[in-house]
Design a protein around this nucleic acid. Sequence first.
DNA 1: GTAATCTGTAACCGAATGGTTACGGATCAG
DNA 2: CTGATCCGTAACCATTCGGTTACAGATTAC
Lengths: 120, 120
Amino acid sequence: MVTDQTKPVDHPAFRAISDPTRRAILDGLRDGPRTSGRIAASFLVSRPAVCKHLKILVNSGLVRVHKRGRERVYELEARPLEKVEGWLEQYRQFWASRLARLKDYLESEQTGADELKGNS
Amino acid sequence: MVTDQTKPVDHPAFRAISDPTRRAILDGLRDGPRTSGRIAASFLVSRPAVCKHLKILVNSGLVRVHKRGRERVYELEARPLEKVEGWLEQYRQFWASRLARLKDYLESEQTGADELKGNS
DNA sequence: GTAATCTGTAACCGAATGGTTACGGATCAG
DNA sequence: CTGATCCGTAACCATTCGGTTACAGATTAC
């Protein structure tokens, strides 16, 4: 076996970070906790839309929320991203290794011996 | 500024890897190039469904394809994942640093001085 | 040539997604 | 108490998504 045989990684975070707006929200929260209104003010979409994104982020574990008076403070909780990182890690060798670059080179002159590289 | 100020990262790969089936397809391709039929055979969903997933993966740049006789060989192209990795990297400090763990500890006894940590 | 095989796509369908406007609950200001 | 403010959710809508079955184009086998 060429690569590590690991169970399929699944986590709601994968879905959560697939949306550009949600990623932008997370990016903003890297500067510190923010209230719902303040977050929404920095986006073109409506406030309820942001609220729904925040809900998704909370449900995926990427953001925590707690009340403070009449406002609610949202805060980044990055730990679930570790799952994504873990999945990604298994691919790093395919873009970072010398072998990967060698492969790229060989592919520039089609050998036609494709499936020889790994068939179970 | 606490964190690096970077342009919002966007790439079709984020959407592509949000689906569990597509991630499983990529996982399989780590063992080497495979034909469409062989890939489909290892999934419960129908062959056309796998075809559509493969198309999405090709369009996102995560998979390359070339014909060989009457079959088509799909091959992993991991480089776009570097974009995802780059975005993720900006969050590593939030789950890996000593500061992050200190924050976690402090949060276990609500101080109420939330937004003091970073307001522009 | 003809039949079997490998493959992608069209047509269709139900469910989920991402957005909107309208509303109501809770809290602060006066 | 009353009005303004902050906020989440309900209801609705168009679009996308992920799946299916049916079909058609190429290539191989005989």
